[in-house]
Write a protein that binds this DNA or RNA. Structure first.
Lengths: 344, 344
DNA sequence: GGCCGACGAGAAAGCGTTTTCTCATTGCCG
DNA sequence: CGGCAATGAGAAAACGCTTTCTCGTCGGCC
């Protein structure tokens, strides 16, 4: 009976009829506007409760010009790093009454720009994780995405906060740690070519090499997942390196797993380090030496930056730089004599 | 110049003016309605491109009565199981042009109902993972959430597909596996009290105990995460059991880590099994015997069910039951004599 | 050459809200 | 006792789009 003809759902009009007032008044009551007679307000509220009226958010969004929703574009939802960012973002946004819409680009960077645009139009703001997108494209689309917060990227476009992890510093810290343990032959198991954070690591390694010309650093092609590490065992062993800097924890774990299968002892024969400090890193065997990134916190900070933009607040410190913290565990240990020198 | 006064964004009206037609015609062109003169259509398209016009999805949603968005309610975004469901759901929905809005209840089940309602109103359908919600509450709110798909829950309310994993069968398979290895003293490291999937496991264990009265099965309180397993070492050792059925892989990994610290050999002294077969399960040390649940596939299936509901298709097989597959790895092995009998 | 049907595009009515504008009523003060 | 300010609620416009309704025009056919 109390059903509206068109959608079948109860609308503000139904409540208005039931309470014997105009729908404008219902709206006023529902939004806590106090220019309404308390008696009438009570009547409206009673009608709303009785009909279980819930305002349609779409109509509301149209009228208010806001959706109370933010979007996040991630290249791969299977990656623990993005899961953690999403988690931190979601939690922080929820505290302010915002929801998050996810857009997974499934690593196809050609789709990222369109995906980002679509997501943005449905939301009040956007968090963009697009490590492979070209700088040019990013700079081109960034203005149209405002309010926008960038993760692990920066852009020349104005007014776009960036939250970046100092991967360069982190990888240097790890390399220094290995050198401190006596390793003189290192290998870097790189991430996806073209990935921004991989670029930062490479820059860090260049700085490291400049500082330690006597240390040999082999560059090995790689990727960002478990199988990459697992499949890299041969090239790692062939490199003769005793200290391996894996692109991230996933790769490190895959590598350790592969080394284990070959009977190579970690850290006895080879030391392995990861990056990120994902939750599992402290439970691998051996536990993984890595550079800890407060990644869920980064998600929370992304929300705060975005919120400031949405509220058009003057923001004193736009963006931020996160320093990874060296987390020394059991996968790294003193270097032993190079394996090639065992004899024969 | 081409900016609309109110929102500052370009609207259909701007394109209409630029192309010298009515906004109705613009709408027709944008939606591929062929009752438009090709010349005019071309003019409109040119204007749209030049102005970079993108239809406002909110206005569109209001007019069409659909949002092309679905919602998913999860109790904990940090849990790999829900991450995988989300991933599968997101991917499948994206293929049909749908986006997903996430609602993380952060394990506070009192909020789940409100959260679900809010999410549902912004979306065309909902996937609900609410393992702790009471049956009564679920049954009460379910009709108002339609189209709705339930994960690992069923409800008496009509027309609600449920996708459930047969945890009872899985835990029985694992228990049988341990018994087959000679274990006679088992312990079940339970999940969160009140969790639906924990209940299913308990039922399975009852069936198992009825079949194997000679096997001793100790019930231990637990939880669902890493720390639970890690913290359960004492009670596990105290139980005297040699075969441990952990609630899930996370708990199993935590437990193995704790046992390792105590110098207890797995599987030499104690066999440990998990549940779920999360990606990391094959890379633990030792690799984890578990019951594999095709969880990302479940997310995909959830979308298909939901899609059928949204499209009001007659669906032949609503819901589905997933059989876990025993994945025997290195964390389970032959039982040795009970530790209490070593001597003294 | 005139009439009728078909086709194409503009006008207008929604979709469900919020909010401004307007007006009626009340009460106060001169 | 009358006029005016304040108050409160309804009417209507706005948000940006889709879609029905309506009407003008063109072409074909007799």
């Amino acid at each position: 009976m109390a059903r509206k003809s068109a959608t079948g759902r109860i609308g503000i009009a139904d409540v208005a009829v039931k309470a014997g007032v105009s729908h404008a008044t219902v709206s006023r009551v529902m939004n806590g506007n106090f220019t309404v007679d308390p008696d009438i307000a009570a009547r409206v509220r009673a009608a709303a409760v009785e009909l279980k009226y819930q305002p349609n958010p779409v109509g509301r969004s149209l009228a208010l010009g806001k959706t109370d929703t933010i979007g996040i574009v991630v290249p791969d939802l299977a990656n623990p790093t993005f899961q953690a960012i999403l988690r931190g973002l979601s939690r922080a946004a929820a505290e302010d009454g915002y929801r998050v819409l996810i857009a997974d680009s499934f690593e196809v960077s050609s789709e990222e720009a369109i995906l980002a645009g679509e997501a943005r139009r449905r939301c009040d703001g956007l968090v963009l994780c697009a490590p492979r997108m070209s700088d040019a494209e990013l700079e081109e689309i960034a203005p149209s995405l405002h309010p926008l917060v960038l993760i692990n990227r920066t852009t020349a476009a104005a007014g776009i906060p960036s939250l970046v992890v100092d991967y360069g510093q982190g990888v240097q810290d790890l390399a220094e740690h290995l050198v401190g343990l006596g390793h003189t032959r290192l290998a870097f198991l790189a991430g996806p070519a073209g990935s921004a954070s991989n670029g930062l690591r490479l820059e860090g390694l260049e700085a490291f090499k400049a500082r330690h010309p006597q240390v040999d650093v082999t560059m090995l092609d790689g990727g960002s997942d478990f199988d990459t590490g697992h499949g890299a065992v041969d090239s790692v062993l062939a490199s003769g390196a005793t200290g391996i800097l894996a692109f991230n924890d996933l790769v490190a774990m895959g590598l350790m797993s592969g080394l284990h299968e070959r009977g190579v002892d970690v850290p006895g024969d080879i030391s392995v380090t990861g990056f990120d400090d994902i939750p599992f890193a402290r439970y691998t065997t051996p536990t993984l030496t890595t550079a800890a990134v407060p990644i869920a916190e980064l998600g929370g900070q992304a929300w705060r930056e975005l919120r400031a933009l949405i509220r058009k607040e003057d923001h004193d410190a736009p963006g931020g730089r996160y320093q990874p913290r060296l987390e020394i565990r059991a996968s790294s240990g003193p270097a032993k004599a190079p394996r090639t020198a065992t004899h024969g």
